[in-house]
Design a protein around this nucleic acid. Structure first.
Lengths: 225, 225
DNA sequence: TGAAAATGATAGTAAAGCTATCTTAAAAAA
DNA sequence: TTTTTTAAGATAGCTTTACTATCATTTTCA
């Protein structure tokens, strides 16, 4: 009997709350594995249905389409990172220390694992790295944004931007730096693995230490008085 | 009779060189318009064929599939930016000045327009901003990378990284900074337009001045001794 | 235990993503 | 100029994806 952690995500993301049923959790669990393994483009509800011995129709009762499922997963991830950051920075006063902890939290989010049993956080992190941008690079962004589908990311960015402003209240780009830290982290982990000529760092056996150092170096320089 | 500029791109990107024929140039021209207008996901060869009064079969003679067409367009764009940078930094000695010119070149690439008649550079820039990441976020990256499909981007990054190293030879992340400038530029123009809460800058009527200022501010801070 | 809700089974449709073949038109070689 | 090669158009067809609809069967829980 394990503790059930339930993320509260925008309910426009799904038709039926997947975290509340066996089938729903199966969908989450196996979609993560399938997308990680085959990529988002060749991922289909048919393949997912076959994998979990269910049917396309049943999956469509939970998610309108695979894009919204991806959005759900990505939001889940951002909420989870936000939770990690909150947890790890509790009782830390110094904003510089806080930011270091924040960076560590999301760079190696998948290691520190406060684990929800049906979510493989490490593979979900890979999905965010490889496919995450597709969640908001759509013709429907504006519409989806108006429905609040990106609130989790915005809230996370806001949390980080506040810490950045605490460090240096004159810094003009706290939000841009916050989002850039996330995007840069994902990008360079991806580059290190697939397009190493586009970066200076390397990631061996999922050791993301160099990425963390780079992000710390960047923030230190940028936020110095 | 206009001068025909032809980009030399990796010939694995296409089946038949589209820059050499009327139909090929039509494909390039109209695919840019269609992808810009409807987004990459709902863009199809069928729709493109209808638009240019040709057939799906004919388009397939030029490009294996729409993903490779996108890759072609994105490569064309990077080559074009590279060309612009080269042109604009000729005879400029001071690397700091050079980098400023480089930043200006790609941020407002679409304005300075050395125009190839069948390419709407401004819309192509929009495509790179909105859909560019999809060019390398695929399950086939490694394979495509081994075929040299990302060389244009790598060469561009290298050019910029060299200037960065000229400014500050101790800087440890010249490639990462170079790519980050591009990615950040695209990201924040996109954010400003669609997810303004994720950035601090705004882009009114395609005036990307604030983006340029931000990138200059970042590089100045990062490359200071 | 009985009604309501969730899931499964099955079928079907439109569009996307291709491939094949044949014919006609245009360009290049002879 | 005539022949021959090459490119493009027309048409057809096939598989997969992305969905919707309907009905039967479980499961849940009041």
């Amino acid at each position: 009997m394990s503790i059930e952690i339930k993320m509260s995500l925008n309910d426009g993301l799904y038709l039926r709350e997947p975290q509340d049923s066996k089938l729903g959790r199966n969908i989450i669990q196996s979609s993560i594995l399938l997308i990680d393994e085959f990529g988002f483009e060749s991922f289909t509800f048919k393949k997912l249905a076959d994998r979990i011995n269910s049917t396309e129709a049943s999956i469509y009762r939970y998610f309108e389409n695979k894009h919204l499922l991806l959005l759900f997963l990505v939001n889940w991830y951002w909420e989870w990172v936000h939770y990690l950051i909150h947890f790890n920075t509790m009782n830390v006063e110094d904003p510089r220390k806080k930011l270091k902890i924040i960076i560590h939290s999301f760079v190696s989010a998948s290691k520190d694992n406060p684990s929800v049993d049906y979510v493989n956080e490490s593979k979900l992190h890979n999905i965010v790295i490889s496919e995450g941008g597709k969640a908001y690079h759509t013709k429907d962004v504006d519409d989806e944004n108006s429905k609040g589908f990106f609130l989790s990311y915005k809230n996370l960015a806001t949390t980080v931007s506040i810490v950045i402003s605490e460090i240096n209240s004159d810094f003009k780009y706290p939000f841009a730096l916050a989002t850039n830290l996330f995007e840069m982290s994902n990008n360079h982990i991806y580059f290190a693995k697939h397009l190493p000529k586009l970066t200076d760092i390397s990631v061996k056996e999922n050791d993301v230490n160099e990425v963390e150092n780079m992000l710390n170096y960047f923030t230190d320089k940028l936020l110095a008085d």
